[in-house]
Design a protein around this nucleic acid. Structure first.
Lengths: 267, 267
DNA sequence: CGAGGAGTTGACTTTGTTCAATCCCCGTGG
DNA sequence: CCACGGGGATTGAACAAAGTCAACTCCTCG
């Protein structure tokens, strides 16, 4: 392999136009309010530089902007109650970073540079303004889409680091919370799906699902009769699920230093 | 438990207005082009009824509409090359179904009723029209968001049913494909992340990642030197990953009848 | 050149899967 | 009204895959 073919691609500078194409049909990273298609939008084209290990943003920070990577790479990650770190995505040149937080007031993850990285910054004011011009429909779509992405990432985290018991309890609580949201009893309900379907969703076999349900019942935390479930001790259940639940307004992540600047500054 | 509290909530009829609130700030399910916020949009308010086990749509079908659940519940699922089924989401009253396919020409999953279900139908023509009126920015956002959702679901599926080897190979191929997209060599590249970070992403420990890399190298499929990876036998690698890869323009799913067919029928 | 983080490798343990037998509703039909 | 059949669910035992703990090597960075 020659250098030309074996080079370290991500380190190669990439013209912004290229990165922006990648990001979708972004206009040049240079100011281009026009191209954004909504009147009055300033693309407020700033360039951000990060060194390896530095944070682009922290979970819980107010969402001020989203980014497109020009050069380098970024990981977005979360931490769990018990201190484990879960990488939810890797981002490479052309990818958007922070998109999953667009419709939120606070970032839903940490973003850390895996190497020296340059990004185009788009102020969220501009984007929100654009969003405001969207049909309400569009906003709702965005909102709903974001909700589904969020849930998918929760599942992702669940599958990556929860035990069978934790997964099942988490799943039951999701159902309960869903029912509560809709104004129904959240402590007694009927499963609409088979053990097999549950297992498929949370990455277990139907036997394991069944066994775990039995164990929880033995422990007096729930009652199981066919597909009718009663949650007897929600605090205890939440405690189990919490072990590997994503911290929402979290403390500091541990992986890597944050280069001082944006660092959570804990040692 | 009394009936009043222990009733089967999801079976309860729910006024459409309620379901629509749930779905975001959807207008009444009754015709309300106005409320959609874009001129000329017909909400083309149709109601769809499904009986338990029926499909709402199939993977690969042209995307004609998306739905909001009024009563009932839906699972969306995919199948893998080797015939396993993976549930990617459960949807309950108020949830949107098919949203993840909005920006695509074909549905990216199957949607099956878990019980008798009623849904509000929104023709995608109307939605696309709305999308067309969005700033190009908005469309790109939608596109990018959808891309991230898709990837999250791929990870979800990977975590739920792939072995360590399959996960790692899939991950390497994702990296390679990403590089190829960006015009770089896709057979030799440098990992930007540690074994630990890879492991976190694909749900393995760093030791397992290391071991699997070694095994693949032993087998002559790849070369590993520190963080420099060379893919020597991509067909073989693809074959490994394919075992549990989501079928794109798939045949029929086996779980439940769709009016006739049933069980996985293999064994 | 030294220190320390990253990576590899091995031995052992744990967790969940697999295979298989059995149970239990529930709906059907006698 | 009750027997029967069948799919979903439960449970057990053996097994396998990945995790854990630990020792050791090798770069890389300072």
């Amino acid at each position: 392999m020659t250098q030309s073919d074996d080079r370290q691609p991500q380190r190669e500078a990439m013209p912004c136009s290229t990165c922006c194409q990648m990001a979708g049909a972004w206009p040049e990273c240079a100011p281009a309010g026009q191209a954004l298609g909504a009147p009055g939008i300033e693309a407020s084209q700033r360039l951000v530089r990060l060194r390896k290990g530095e944070f682009l943003y922290l979970l819980g920070d107010p969402v001020t902007s989203i980014y497109a990577i020009r050069v380098g790479s970024i990981k977005t990650h979360v931490t769990t109650e018990d201190g484990r770190t879960q990488v939810v995505a890797f981002h490479f040149p052309g990818d958007m970073v922070g998109l999953d937080s667009l419709v939120r007031p606070h970032y839903a993850s940490y973003a850390t540079a895996l190497e020296d990285t340059k990004l185009c910054l788009f102020t969220v004011d501009a984007l929100r303004l654009a969003a405001a011009t969207l049909a309400p429909l569009g906003r709702q779509l965005l909102q709903a889409l974001d909700g589904q992405l969020q849930r998918a990432r929760e599942v992702q985290t669940m599958l990556a680091l929860m035990t069978a018991e934790e997964r099942l309890v988490t799943f039951l609580l999701w159902l309960a919370d869903g029912l509560a949201l809709r104004g129904f009893s959240s402590s007694a309900f009927v499963l609409r799906m088979s053990r097999e379907e549950i297992g498929s969703y949370i990455g277990l076999t139907l036997e394991t699902v069944s066994r775990q349900l039995s164990r929880l019942a033995e422990g007096g935390l729930i009652t199981v009769r066919h597909r009718t479930i009663t949650l007897l001790d929600k605090p205890a259940l939440r405690a189990i699920a919490a072990r590997a639940t994503i911290l929402a307004h979290a403390p500091a992540p541990r992986l890597r230093r944050a280069g001082g600047a944006s660092a959570p500054a804990q040692g």
